[in-house]
């Protein structure tokens, strides 16, 4: 990858805002790793759902349908 994978500062800001905590130096890498896992799960489920619904690609409908499940799966 030529460009960097993700803006670390942005992720830190996001988590900081939601948790109202400071974040240790490299925790955001792990957080982003978790986010990647989430995205993988979401996209995979959405594509399965899209195939089931006979859609061609991933659509908003399939993503919305799957979002709740994958969020629940990633509930700590």
């Amino acid at each position: 990858m030529g460009q960097k994978l993700y803006p670390r500062a942005t992720v830190k800001k996001i988590v900081k805002a939601h948790s109202n905590c400071s974040i240790s130096k490299n925790a955001d890498v792990m957080i982003f790793l978790d986010y990647m896992l989430f995205m993988q799960n979401l996209v995979k489920e959405a594509s399965i759902e899209a195939k089931k619904g006979g859609e061609r690609g991933i659509t908003a409908r399939s993503v919305k349908k799957v979002t709740a499940d994958s969020l629940a799966k990633f509930k700590g």
Partner: peptide
Amino acid sequence: TPDAMNAIMQASDWFFEQLGEDLE
């Protein structure tokens, strides 16, 4: 599709919200 992209963005926002609360 851009619609799906928006949905994914929404889902990721929710995900970070949930994650932040859990980590907190």
